[in-house]
Design a protein around this nucleic acid. Structure first.
Length: 437
RNA sequence: UCCGCAGUAGCUCAAUGGUAGAGCAACCGGCUGUUAACCGGUAGGUUGUAGGUUCGAGUCCUACCUGCGGAGCCA
């Protein structure tokens, strides 16, 4: 490169430096070569810029390097920023000098179609592609928005343990690991039970971290390791919980629309579908009504049946916002959910179903706060009372009504992005029979 | 775990039971503005594995392996 100094900038900063000579470092995304003019598309993580080399205006070494450079080679470009309507993004670099920092040979992922098996085995390299970059940026935006949402409202983040001594809810399969020679430990499948005592200490709390489910699920809506955010609030009851969940989803959606519109466009997401979400109230349908709706649609369901994916989609398809289904039968929900005093066959719980077939993004409930009722539920579910003694203590020492929900980060992100499969919404997906890379 | 589908060049896919092919990537050459650029050329193969049927198997049969889609479960 020339000895002339030029400020180093990122691609995202280029539009604010028109006419200025700058240096950009990154990787070659694609190139198009001609006899007198050559185009190099540079990516640096912040964006993409087309670098234009004219044979007459660059050193011969730079001109030749532009012909040789291969996809994903590390490169350095010195050039003048020019506003150019012919270039994607509206800005390009008129190159003064160019050099290859490291020549990349045979990058496996070419700018053509690939199958998912191949791409997943190359996930560490797949991350570099434009679509994956956009999804990861949106995921990161959602994570920040989650923390901001709770911080603004006076919540304290309480990290729940990942190693736990037993099943939190006693139902799903857990990943088992050796804790000591005598004792097993299990990877957490929910922070909720640990958050309830924390709510007694801090009032409004939330946890946000990885969650593990060892079920042998093989669907687009499941991962074995995923991230879940779980608020838990003292003295909050079911109606307030529904308000919180709705406010939460709306705020996250608006945040993504405001700050990541460009990434959504790259994913060809229909923005109007997300804008609607922020503007309209979310319908709240009691389970008993939901059963009637499904029966009218021809589903053979009756009170006491749980809803599968098809039923969820059928319920959600009538609305262009998420819909909350509330007050499920006691028999199909977790042991800790508070029965409805007005209708003891159902619990004060909610599932929020996203539109466009994205399914359940939130599940939550008011928790049982009566010690003896919770104790009888633990017995009914054949759970070991000793293991839940500490959990019962929340009801023993100054009990209080409280509620919380869990939201799956990847499911929400998938819906925002309009991506059909969760595996693209986490950097390194862990799925049944796939843990590499 | 169950049901269904698939496995051919680095990648994406073709090939009636009868000589394994194309596009992209790679390599060589051409092109003054390209937008997954284009044009010409070169090279690239134990058709997932093992067995079977047949004069002859990528193709038909059996088993296994791997992956994909879905169910159950859930976020």
């Amino acid at each position: 490169m020339s000895e002339r100094p030029a400020p180093a900038v990122t691609v995202s900063e280029l539009p604010s430096h028109p006419g200025v000579e700058v240096t950009v470092k990154g990787w070659l995304y694609n190139k198009r070569t001609g006899g007198k003019v050559r185009f190099l598309i540079l990516r640096d993580g912040s964006g993409y810029v087309q670098c234009v080399l004219s044979k007459a205006e660059v050193p011969e070494a730079a001109w030749n390097a532009a012909a040789e450079v291969t996809q994903e080679s590390t490169i350095e470009v010195r050039g003048v920023v020019r506003l150019e309507p012919r270039a994607a993004g509206g800005v390009e670099l008129s190159v003064l000098d160019f050099r290859i920092l490291d020549a990349c040979k045979d990058f496996p992922i070419t700018p053509k179609e690939h199958g998912t098996d191949f791409l997943l085995s190359q996930r560490h390299l797949w991350l570099r592609s434009a679509r994956q970059v956009a999804i990861l940026k949106i995921r990161s935006e959602v994570e920040s928005a989650i923390h901001d949402f709770f911080y603004k409202r006076g919540y304290t983040r309480v990290d729940s343990p990942i190693l736990t001594p037993n099943a939190c809810e006693g139902t799903s399969n857990l990943f088992e690991t050796e804790y000591t020679e005598e004792e097993k430990a299990y990877l957490s499948q929910s922070g909720q039970l640990y958050l309830e005592p924390a709510a007694a200490a801090l009032g409004k709390v939330y946890c946000f971290g990885p969650t593990f489910r060892a079920e042998k699920s093989k669907t687009r809506r499941h991962l074995r390791e995923f991230w879940m955010v779980e608020p838990e609030v003292a003295f909050l009851e079911i109606e307030g919980l529904m308000d919180l969940a709705e406010e939460f989803i709306k705020e996250l959606t608006v945040r993504v629309l405001d700050r990541r519109a460009e990434d959504l466009k790259r994913l060809e997401r229909d923005l109007t579908k997300l804008e609607t979400v922020a503007q309209k109230p979310f319908p709240r349908i009691p389970y008993r009504e939901a059963v009637e709706i499904l029966q009218k649609k021809g589903f053979p369901v009756s009170f006491g049946d749980d809803f599968g994916g098809d039923e969820e989609t059928a319920l959600a398809e009538d609305f262009d916002t998420p819909v909350m289904v509330t007050r499920y039968p006691v028999s199909i929900k977790a042991f800790y959910m508070q029965p409805d005093p007005a209708d003891p066959e159902v619990v004060l719980g909610l599932d929020m179903l996203a539109p466009e077939g994205y399914g359940e993004i939130i599940g939550g409930s008011q928790r049982i706060h009566d010690h003896d009722l919770l104790l009888s539920r633990i017995k009914q579910h054949n759970l070991p009372i000793e293991a839940f003694q500490w959990y019962l203590d929340v009801r023993k020492y100054g009990t209080f009504p409280h509620s919380g929900f869990g939201m799956g980060l990847e499911r929400f992100t998938a819906w925002m992005c309009g991506v059909p499969h969760l595996r693209e919404c986490i950097p390194y997906p862990r799925m049944l029979y796939r843990i590499y890379p």
